[in-house]
């Protein structure tokens, strides 16, 4: 089972785009821009916390199907 390009890279690309948007938004202005920066840069930070701490049985089944 080979995963398609988007299956493989969709999330990484989306997270990277959000990160870069957040880094730029903070430079553009204060106030609302800083808020936007925090939200966009929060995506990778929260992804780390969530993916790193969740206990999902679904993933486990998925993984155990692998040969």
């Amino acid at each position: 089972m080979k995963r398609s390009f988007l299956q493989m890279w969709g999330w990484p690309i989306a997270i990277a785009a959000s990160t870069l948007a957040g880094l730029v938004a903070g430079l553009v202005g204060d106030g609302a821009w800083d808020l936007l920066a925090a939200v966009a840069l929060g995506v990778p930070a929260l992804a780390c916390v969530w993916l790193g701490s969740r206990r999902s049985t679904r993933r486990r089944r998925q993984a155990s199907r692998a040969p």
């Binding site: 995963r3 493989m8 990484p12 993916l51 993933r59 486990r60 998925q62």
Partner: peptide, 11 residues
């Protein structure tokens, strides 16, 4: 990651 879903951590 060929066989793993994004973000999988096999605990």
């Amino acid at each position: 990651m060929r066989k793993l879903e994004f973000g999988t951590v096999r605990r």
